[in-house]
Nucleic acid binder design. Structure first.
Lengths: 208, 208
DNA sequence: GATATATCACCCCTTTTGGGTGATTTTAGC
DNA sequence: GCTAAAATCACCCAAAAGGGGTGATATATC
């Protein structure tokens, strides 16, 4: 009993919260030590709860789940956070991962997936449900209709990496003037007239 | 029969290739139209094969799977590519996704997963197996031990986005001298003395 | 053979950068 | 409440990089 996996649920929808509680307390080696309707309600007691895993909703009254992540991480550095939410925009996913979430499941995840995810994060894994993976994957796929040539793309990538034209010229074994020439063409094609604009436009359109 | 899902397998290991063939040809609405031991062997006939899905290995004699992706995409724009490989370094995964792969499975994926993945990509989804998801997730998680303060991180992010100190000062409503001051501290903390080095170091260590 | 791409050359001037040395005010941790 | 860290601003300097203009040439690619 004492070696059970300690779990806390933070979810404002009472039906869902009770549902998760029921589901997870049925698992032999899981212990639901507490469940809360918001992070604000949870935060004073989390230290005492000392959970290994927190199932965290994002959309909650008061402090949002995203804001809560760094606070939890600070307070309980060894606790794994699994986001369990309906939100699945690319921005939300990335922000959650950036904040330090160990997993991101959407609420249509099956019981087995949730249980599996809890075990996985405890073993140092990261977990995401398939539709989240889909979002992440798509956000990586380059725009195939880039107006930039191969060389121009190469150069713009390096500019985005902070390299100067001199460095780029050296590393590509071409003249600085050639780099300048490419950069000019890049600016024309992207309809910009500075480095930052070029990076912004190219990033937004996934040309690099 | 004519409405069957047309699949091509490109995999140099004959045992595996035959195994996949056997597995997938058992699925009612799947048709293995062809299978090849390398992309070089496949490329002349792929157009004729007109597959909806290609299962593609990465490590193959001749043209690698990664190099093959853009070629396939160009030749068969509506064909979905699912990488099926033992390689699962973050770089490889990202490169494959960047090249335009629609899925990335590792070879320990179960039969059901592979079949599910094939159906998923045909429905416009992206697919990744759990260990790949793990890699992707970890590569997103910021280094929590960054020596940089919040403000310094903010400023370095903007420098990485190609903004000049003037622009940064304007957008953050602070003086250019303040930005300069922060940048100097950033350089000291990262032990670098130029923009590009700072971006490189910070990116490598996931400080930004 | 025409068009796109990649390569290089020289002009101009303005902006940015990086280094140095300082100070003041907030903010945050103990 | 004290102390240290962080954030803010000021002014010096010279070198580097940036951006705009206008060209040429070779090599692909179609």
């Amino acid at each position: 009993m004492s070696n059970n996996l300690r779990i806390v649920i933070i979810e404002d929808d009472e039906i869902l919260r009770k549902g998760y509680e029921l589901l997870l307390s049925d698992v032999e080696d899981f212990s639901i030590v507490n469940s809360y309707g918001s992070y604000d309600l949870a935060k004073k007691q989390l230290k005492e709860d000392a959970p290994q895993v927190i199932l965290l909703d994002i959309n909650m009254p008061g402090t949002s789940g995203l804001q809560a992540i760094p606070e939890i991480k600070k307070m309980l550095s060894n606790t794994h956070i699994v986001i369990l939410t309906v939100f699945d925009s690319a921005e939300t996913v990335f922000e959650a991962l950036n904040m330090g979430a160990d997993g991101y499941l959407t609420k249509n995840a099956s019981s087995e997936k949730i249980i599996e995810a809890i075990r996985d994060v405890c073993n140092g894994g990261g977990v995401m449900s398939i539709n989240v993976a889909r979002i992440v994957m798509h956000s990586f796929q380059k725009n195939l209709n880039s107006p930039l040539t191969k060389r121009e793309t190469e150069i713009l990538k390096r500019i985005a990496a902070g390299q100067t034209k001199t460095q780029i010229a050296d590393e590509l074994f071409i003249d600085q003037n050639t780099v300048r020439s490419h950069v000019k063409n890049i600016y024309i094609k992207l309809d910009v007239n500075s480095k930052s604009e070029a990076i912004k436009t190219a990033t937004k359109n996934r040309f690099i």
